[in-house]
């Protein structure tokens, strides 16, 4: 042991703590998150303030004024029943956001639960994952159409139908994360220092699944909005009495060659919203990358 008596006693340098980035600095470093949040924020404002943004009743019929082109009085023109497209598109924002956020939240929470069980309870893994594979083998649009065919068209049922078709993706992702985390030495170290399973999941597994989960949730949000629009477009989604972007486009479809504005405006709104959510998702994916040890 004497050989090491002369081992260099290096000074125990603990690096100066890096200052926490302020919100502004974080946004400057991640412009995609910023752009995504701005777009989503804008849509949220529109959805909440729809009645105060110069809109009229989006369902009020006015046959005398149908198919007006965009003008000062009707910003986005009127549809074949004389309804104000501007008001309809703004109110339609509510449907899209509600469906997008509700599906993302529900699918994330339920998928997280299923994924944790499958990843942790070994005997249940094969069973759960075969069911999930079965669900995944059906294209999500078809599955949603089939589920909608079983029920009455309403926003709630649309949310449920899309959630069911999105759950397997989350469950599969979380199961994979759990399986790879289980092999981490710090999990074994936690078991070795006496940590019980519930605490192990809460403290060591769950926090490490949140980054991939939130990224996945944003993509699900975007995909749910598109699926909702498709379902409404083909008449299997939101009932025609509720203005949604899919409904507006479906009703404008027959006339799109002579009155493209009816389809154009809801399509632009859908595009911007989905773009915003996807930008946020991409930004989160980069920012939460564990390889860049970045403190949020």
């Amino acid at each position: 042991m004497s050989d090491f008596a002369a081992a260099p006693a290096l000074p125990e340098i603990v690096p100066e703590r890096r200052k926490h980035g302020t919100f502004v600095r974080f946004m400057l470093r991640h412009p995609t998150i910023f752009a995504g949040l701005v777009l989503i924020g804008l849509m949220l404002m529109i959805a909440m303030l729809a009645p105060y943004l110069g809109t009229t009743d989006p369902t009020a019929l006015a046959p005398a004024r149908r198919l007006r082109p965009p003008s000062a009085a009707y910003w986005f023109g009127t549809d074949m029943l004389g309804r104000d497209v501007y008001s309809r598109v703004l109110y339609g924002t509510r449907v899209s956001l509600v469906v997008g956020f509700a599906v993302a939240l529900l699918a994330a929470v339920i998928g997280l639960g299923i994924g944790l069980v499958a990843g942790f309870v070994r005997w249940s893994d094969a069973l759960i994952m075969r069911i999930m594979d079965g669900l995944m083998s059906i294209p999500s649009i078809l599955l949603a159409i089939a589920l909608m065919a079983l029920t009455r068209g309403s926003v709630r049922n649309v949310v449920i139908a899309i959630t069911i078709s999105e759950i397997p993706r989350v469950a599969r992702l979380i199961r994979g994360v759990v399986l790879s985390l289980r092999e981490q030495p710090y999990i074994e170290a936690a078991i070795a220092c006496g940590t019980r399973t519930p605490r192990l999941i809460l403290r060591h597994i769950l926090p490490n699944t949140l980054a991939p989960l939130s990224v996945q949730a944003t993509y699900i949000c975007a995909s749910a909005m598109i699926t909702e629009a498709i379902l409404s477009f083909i008449g299997a989604g939101t009932p025609p009495t509720v203005p949604s972007w899919g409904n507006i486009m479906a009703e404008g479809r027959a006339l799109w060659q002579i009155k493209p504005s009816i389809v154009f405006f809801p399509a632009i709104f859908l595009l911007l919203t989905v773009l915003g959510v996807n930008l946020l998702g991409d930004g989160l994916r980069d920012a939460l990358d564990p390889r860049r040890a970045l403190r949020l």
Partner: peptide, 30 residues
């Protein structure tokens, strides 16, 4: 409580999200 282990890789044997205090408090609490 009577037998403990130190692993090879000091980069993967500590949970990256737990502060040193939390990491050391865990066996004490357990």
């Amino acid at each position: 409580q009577r037998m403990q282990i130190v692993f090879q890789d000091p980069f993967s044997s500590l949970n990256p999200r737990l502060s040193v205090r939390d990491c050391l408090a865990e066996p004490l609490a357990n």
